[in-house]
Simulated assay, not measured.
Amino acid sequence: MTTENPYQLLVFDWDGTLMDSVARIVACMQSTIEVLGATPLPAQRLRDVIGLGMREAILQLYPDADEALFQAFTQAYRERFLFIDDTPAPLFAGVPELLDDLLDQGYWCAVATGKSRVGLDRVLDETGLGPRFLTTRCADETLSKPHPQMLQTIMDELGIMPEQTLMIGDSTHDLLMARNAGTDALGVTSGVHSARELQPHAPKGLLDGVAQLPDWLGCRRHAWSSSG
């Protein structure tokens, strides 16, 4: 880390941050709930749990869920997301170019996501983005956000300190995880939560979308250089 480059490691959430997949996730949850005959829930309730691990999300939606419901919900949801539902879930515009630009500038990139390993590996392969990331962590490999373990294991693997790390995400779960891990966080309002919902969790900044990240980092580098 230098005054010109305060962050070495940029850790991205996936859904709602790099991929415009929130509508697809909600549609798959709604379909799963209908198939299982569970109590219907408003779309906003479903949006609010995006980013959590599957078990944690189900328990927030249905606090009395037993193991049978958890297993049935998980299987039905994954079948719909991976094979059945055709709601578009494209990358946000310019994401591949954004990552290439960041790598060219010397940043290290990683992913910390509530997706399963199977789900993340699938989209990394489909989008061709896998080689851009030094490492990735999923909710079925660590404790769920907002617990800091996901970020901590990434930093430990790469030998990076919290003050060298910036978490970029669209949900309060991302910002809380960053705070719990002792890292800075940057909120994007392109996904689950609005600026009004993200602001109380003290992000270093709020962006309309991840494509604005290079400009924000450039301003930070300039500020650090001037203060040095």
Rank of each mutant, 00 (worst) to 15 (best):
181 A>F: 03
34 E>V: 08
12 F>C: 07
23 A>Y: 00
17 T>W: 04
69 L>Y: 03
216 W>Y: 14
228 G>F: 12
160 I>G: 01
165 T>D: 06
55 R>G: 05
170 D>A: 09
178 A>T: 11
57 A>P: 03
173 H>V: 03
83 F>Q: 11
210 V>Q: 08
55 R>V: 15
108 W>N: 05
197 E>G: 04
203 P>D: 04
228 G>S: 15
141 E>V: 05
116 S>A: 12
30 Q>P: 03
165 T>K: 04
198 L>Q: 03
145 K>L: 08
208 D>V: 02
135 T>Q: 03
42 P>W: 06
56 E>I: 01
4 E>R: 11
84 I>H: 07
104 D>I: 13
128 G>L: 11
35 V>Q: 12
218 G>I: 13
177 M>V: 03
78 R>P: 00
18 L>D: 02
130 G>L: 00
29 M>L: 13
126 E>C: 02
146 P>T: 08
48 D>P: 00
13 D>T: 09
192 V>C: 07
21 S>M: 07
60 Q>E: 14
156 D>C: 11
83 F>N: 11
12 F>T: 07
37 G>H: 07
118 V>P: 00
220 R>T: 15
216 W>S: 10
3 T>N: 13
155 M>K: 05
1 M>E: 10
171 S>V: 03
132 R>Y: 05
160 I>V: 15
126 E>W: 07
27 A>P: 06
77 Y>H: 07
29 M>V: 10
170 D>M: 06
122 R>S: 13
137 R>M: 10
93 A>Q: 15
165 T>W: 00
199 Q>E: 15
217 L>C: 08
16 G>A: 09
61 L>E: 06
90 P>D: 14
